[in-house]
Amino acid sequence: MGEKRLGACDIGGTSIKMAFLTTEGDIIRKWSIPTDRSEGGLNIVSHIARSFNEELEQDGVTAADVIAVGVGAPGPADPVEGTISGAVNIGWENGYPLKKLLEEALELPVFIENDANCAALGEMWRGAGNGAGDVVCVTLGTGVGGGVVSKGMIITGVNGAAGEIGHITVVPENGFLCNCGKKGCLETVASATGIVNLYKAEGKDAPDARTVFERAAEGDAAAKRVIDRCAFYLGLAIGNIANTLNPAKVVVGGGVSEAGDVLLAPLEQYVRQFTFPRAMDVLSIEKAKLGNDAGVIGAAYLAKVMTV
């Protein structure tokens, strides 16, 4: 028998990240496999199980040394029913019974959650959240993701839709159309795509958000206005979240956050402008620390707290 460990899995559209961790959240081993989206994602569970068992064997341990497995997956999750819905980039039908199928394949307890929520748990536990139990995570990538942690647990809402920060309306009139069908969502003005949208509204073109940031650094006035507008909308949303939830930290991650202080400095000023003073007194804005490991660390935390 080896040291007891936690299993973790972060299912993405192109790859599946997996890891074994200690109960304190230190990664023992991590690896990834390609996501097989053929046949409606039918083979994903069996591929996870095979890879998981191969890595256990390589470590010279067995499934008996694993306490439980936490899994983050795209789309709204129903942790009670153990189902995932809306994972269109993988091909799973609504209500896909991920927990049941993985438990049968792994012969271990499995706990599931939305992937963005797992990343939020990871940052709360071992990342920029630094163990604070009340943390809001905002991920600025192609879209805007989010996760809300209160007293160390994810807030999921009635049907798993809590924490959809990217779909807070920040442009109430004449906003850009969002993929969700609404107009004026935060995602349309604060994601990588949103920054390009704002730049086009200035009458200029850029292939990606990185280019807009580069042009701002070179003195492009339109690009500077776009970054300020992005920070404004993001600060408005975070301020209202802070007024509602009173978190200790807001953790900002994702590719767009790599712009650093050019975005985060004005963002902090706008958050201060829109946040109730008493809530602002205890709030700090932090850059995410865990990168691609956030999902597996958060999934392991889920497995830990669900088996205590």
Rank of each mutant, 00 (worst) to 15 (best):
I165K: 02
G160L: 08
L264S: 07
G235K: 12
H47N: 15
G122C: 03
S32G: 05
P76G: 04
S257V: 10
S284Q: 15
A161N: 09
A216I: 11
V305K: 10
V149P: 01
S284E: 15
G152I: 01
K287S: 06
K224Q: 15
A87L: 04
N240D: 13
G146W: 04
D115T: 03
N94Q: 06
F274R: 11
P97S: 09
N43I: 00
D59G: 14
G2F: 03
T14G: 09
P172W: 11
A64F: 01
G152P: 03
Y270P: 05
I165N: 01
E173M: 05
G160N: 10
R278C: 03
A259Y: 09
I297T: 06
V45P: 07
G145D: 06
A49C: 05
G203D: 02
E187C: 08
A49T: 10
K287W: 01
I67C: 00
C180H: 09
K151D: 13
A221F: 10
V45Q: 10
L186D: 05
A299R: 11
F274W: 14
R210S: 08
H167D: 07
N130T: 02
F213R: 08
L245P: 01
S46R: 12
F176T: 12
M1F: 02
V226S: 11
G131P: 05
K182Y: 02
L234P: 12
A192W: 07
V138P: 08
A221G: 01
T188A: 06
N159A: 13
T62K: 08
D228M: 13
Y199T: 05
V196Q: 01
I154S: 07
